[in-house]
Design a protein around this nucleic acid. Structure first.
Lengths: 339, 339
DNA sequence: TTGAAAGCGCTAACAT
DNA sequence: ATGTTAGCGCTTTCAA
C-alpha cells in the first residue's frame, strides 16, 4: 500500500496524493476529499523512511534524561511523550545514569537517530561552548539552566524554576515558623546542578536570617535514591544532631526523610518540620501531607516542547523561561513550640 | 557524507562499501580494511531512512503503555528502555489512557513506525483473534496475559504474575492474622484486566475461608488515580462500614488508602491492616512501611525484551512466563486484637 | 571479488 | 489544478 496505489485508485497522479497528504494548496476540494477518502478506506499510512529520505530529516526529538531514580522525571517524561507525539514528532528517549555525560550521549544520539533537537531532563549547569560543538541541533534544558557555564543565552533554551530562590523561600518559611536549626538533605552540594543551587539557596537564607551554617546538619546522599536519604537522616539523628526542621531538595528525599524521622521516634511536624521542593502527586499522600513548593511540571514539559518545535520549525528563537512554584501547604511544617 | 563519498574516496563501488557496512562476505580483507578506515576517518554514519526504505524494516520496538497514572509502569518503562537500547533496537513509547484501545494504538503505531514488535504494558485480557489481525508483528504482554480471550497461546507471549492467586495469597495473609472483615480497593471489578483478576482472587480467598463477600466493602476507583482511592476510602469510612483490614490491588492505591485511614483517625495497622500487590520503591517509605507482594519488575521487563527480540530475530517461539512475587513484610499488617 | 543498475516510497521542481 | 520525473541514500540482484 503506497502512494501509488492511492493514486491509481483515485485515478490521479502521485503528486496530487502527495499534495493532499502534506496539506499543500493547489488541490481542488473535490479531489482532496476523494483522496482522503481513499486513504481512509485503504488504511494507507505514508512510509516515513521514504519521506525522511527525500526531505533528509527525520521526525525525531531526543529526550535525554539524567538521573533515573528521581520520580519527578517520570511525570515529565510522560508529558513530553504526549506533547511530542501530538505535534507530529517522535520521541527518542534516552535515560542515562547521573554519572554519565548528557552532552556526549545527546551528540551520539543525534547522529544515530538524526534528531531534530533535544530536550535535556536534568543535567549539569556548566556547559561550555567548546563541548557543545558536537551537538549541532537546538536543545532546551528542562528543569535547569546553564548557571555555571559560559554559554551565550542565545545558544540554547531553558525552562526552569529559580532553584536557588525557591530553596531560599522554603527555608524562610521554616524560619518564619520559628525554626533556626534547620537540616538539609541533598544529593550533592557541588553537583553543578539543581542540588548545588538549592543548597546555595539554603545557605543564603540562613545567612539572611543570621543563622550560622552548620555542616553537621547537611545530609549528602550522592544521588536521588531514597534509601540513601533514609540512611543519611538516620545517621544524622543517631549522631544526636540538634535540629527542629529539615529541607529536602526533592519530594522523594523528603518522603524518605519523614520515614527516617518517624522510625526514629520523631513526630513530624511536632518534633521536626519538613519541607521540600517538587510537588509529586505521591507526596500529597504521605502522613502527614508533605509541605512542598510545587513545580509546574506539566507546563514545564509542554513549554519545553513548544520552544523546541518552534526552534525546529524556524518560528522561534532561544528563550529562557523561568517558572514559579506554588506552595502546597501540607501538614509537615509546624510552628516551633516555644522552648 | 554518503556511501558514495566513501566509495569515491576509496576508489571502489558503492556496492562494495555497502557490503563492508553490512558485514557481507566476498570483500577482500584489504579493501574491507581500507573502507572501514575511510568510514572512520570521514565520520560516516549510514542513513537509516535510506536503509529502512530498501529493507523496509526499521529497528523500532513499540511499547504501548495503558494507564498512565500507575507509577509501577514508570519503573517498567525505564528498564524496557534500557534493555531495548542495549540490544540495538529503538524504543518507540506510546502512552495511552486507560479508556483507549491498545490494540488499535499498536496497529497504528506499527504501520507508522514500522515496528518489529510490540510490548504491551497493562492491557485488556480479552483479545480475540479477529481484532488482532491488524497487528501483524509479534507482541508480548508484560504484566498480564490473555485470560479472558480466545487467543491461542502460541499467538503471543506474556510475562506476568498469577494475579488471581497472588491476590488470594494477600487476603489469606490477612485472614491468617485474624481478619474477617476485609475491604478491597480496586480500579474496576470488570476491567477485563488486572483489577478483575485480583478482585476474583480476593473473592475466592473469602469464599475459601467461608467469609461472605460484602459489596459494601469494595471501593471502586475507576482507574489507578490515587485521589480516587483516597476519596473512596474516606467515603467507605464515613459510611460507617465495618472492616479491620484492607487489600489494595496496587501499591499506589494502598498508599492513598493509608492516607485516608490516617486522616480519618484510624491507625494502621492497629485499627486497620493494609496489604497490597506491586512493590514500589516508594511504598517502603510509607509510615508504616507497606506490606506488599512485590512483583519482580526488572526481571519482568528484561524477560519481555528478551522474548520479543528472540521472536524478531527468529530464534524463539511464543512463550508464557509466570513470575512469582515475594512478600515484603512491612508494618501495615497486624494481628487482629481479640474483640 | 567487484561493479552496474534497478528500485524502495516519497517529495518537489518543472511542465502542462 | 494536475501530471511527469528526477532524485534522496541505500541494498541487492545480476553480470562480469
Amino acid at each position: 500500500m503506497t502512494i501509488k496505489d492511492i493514486a491509481a485508485y483515485c485515478g490521479v497522479s502521485v503528486s496530487t496524493v502527495s499534495r493532499v497528504i502534506n496539506d499543500h494548496p493547489d488541490v481542488s476540494p473535490a479531489v482532496r476529499e476523494q483522496v482522503n477518502e481513499a486513504i481512509r478506506k485503504l488504511h494507507f499510512v505514508p512510509n516515513n523512511s521514504a519521506r525522511s529520505l527525500v526531505v533528509s530529516r527525520s521526525t525525531a526529538i531526543g529526550v535525554v534524561s539524567r538521573g533515573v531514580d528521581n520520580p519527578f522525571l517520570s511525570l515529565l517524561i510522560r508529558v513530553l511523550s504526549r506533547e511530542i507525539h501530538d505535534r507530529g514528532y517522535t520521541m527518542v528517549l534516552h535515560q542515562i545514569p547521573t554519572q554519565a555525560d548528557e552532552i556526549q550521549a545527546a551528540a551520539l544520539l543525534q547522529r544515530e537517530k538524526k534528531l531534530l533537537g533535544v530536550i535535556f531532563l536534568g543535567g549539569r549547569f556548566n556547559y561550555t561552548e567548546e563541548e557543545l560543538r558536537q551537538l549541532t541541533v537546538p536543545f532546551v534544558c528542562c528543569t535547569y539552566t546553564n548557571t555555571f557555564g559560559n554559554l551565550s543565552s542565545s545558544a540554547y533554551s531553558s525552562v526552569s524554576i529559580h532553584d536557588e530562590r525557591e530553596a531560599e523561600k522554603a527555608v524562610r518559611l521554616l524560619v518564619d515558623n520559628g525554626h533556626r536549626r534547620i537540616a538539609v538533605v541533598l544529593d550533592d552540594p557541588a553537583d553543578n546542578s539543581i542540588g548545588q543551587l538549592r543548597f546555595q539557596g539554603y545557605r543564603r537564607a540562613l545567612e539572611a536570617e543570621g543563622i550560622d551554617y552548620d555542616p553537621a546538619l547537611a545530609v549528602v546522599t550522592g544521588d536521588y535514591a531514597m534509601s540513601a536519604a533514609y540512611d543519611g537522616v538516620c545517621r544524622l539523628l543517631d549522631s544526636g544532631a540538634d535540629f527542629t526542621a529539615l529541607l529536602a531538595i526533592s519530594d522523594s528525599l523528603a518522603i524518605a526523610a519523614i520515614k527516617a524521622l518517624t522510625d526514629r521516634g520523631r513526630r513530624v511536624p511536632e518534633d521536626c518540620s519538613v519541607i521540600a521542593i517538587d510537588g509529586l502527586e505521591m507526596s500529597s499522600f504521605t502522613v502527614p501531607t508533605l509541605t512542598t513548593l510545587c513545580q509546574p511540571a506539566e507546563e514545564m514539559a509542554e513549554e519545553s516542547v513548544r520552544m523546541l518545535t518552534a526552534l525546529i520549525e524556524g518560528t522561534g528563537v532561544h528563550r529562557h523561561k523561568l517558572m514559579e512554584t506554588t506552595l502546597r501547604r501540607g501538614g509537615s511544617v509546624a510552628r516551633l513550640a516555644r522552648a
